[in-house]
Amino acid sequence: MLSIHNLEASVEDKPILKGLSLSVKPGEVHAIMGPNGSGKSTLGHVLAGREGYEVTGGSVDFFGTDLTELEPEERAREGLFLAFQYPVEIPGVSNLEFLKAAVDAKREHAGLEPLDSVSFIRTARESCQKVDLEQSFLKRGVNEGFSGGEKKRNELLQMMMLEPKIAILDETDSGLDIDALQVVAKGVNAMRNEERGFVVVTHYQRLLNYIVPDYVHVLAGGRIVKSGGKELALQLESEGYGWLEADK
């Protein structure tokens, strides 16, 4: 479904990704680990189409489309979802209006009618329950005054409502205590199925105790330097990243 080949990308003319290749098939969960500054977050931003992240080489194929040619909103409508490491606070725009606009945009793209308000609100409330957010959060401004954990759960809520084909979780575990981490992991696991792919970007192995990956990749210096099964994460946890860098 997602095939990244030799991807090169720069931020402010500084090369960050230097030939990254990764292939994700439906139903698979890939974890991407790596030291600080290895390009983990850049990968998520490049895939989501964030401004300022320039693709300078390679290709990203998403169900036969060149993803890099699409506007960020088109990528989302095609089924790509990026859970932000630092979700943005938008006072004045209610969470509910925001969700409805997002869901309607996606449905319209798929040739479906917008959801009527009643069924939309019902679905939104059910999703709130699943991610353990009180319904009052729907009326508040987007992420406005939310705690770190609430923001991540709000990301998860959006993911549930948008039902992406592939979800990229950018350091979703950062800033979460163990309870919040478990809630988020439970939500992600509930969404795992044979059709949906996940790319879980994380610095620590901890999250992978709860979201068990099929593959683990180590990103260093803008490239994937090692791939393996879930046991690779444990090895990284005990030995750190140093041995890999010495290896290259």
Binding site: G92, V93, V142
Partner: peptide, 19 residues
């Protein structure tokens, strides 16, 4: 952020101005 959820740039601008 709004665009990354599928909302067009034009609609996002209206939502943010109003917000």
């Amino acid at each position: 952020y709004l665009r990354s959820r599928g909302i067009s740039a034009a609609e996002a601008a209206v939502m943010l101005s109003f917000g």
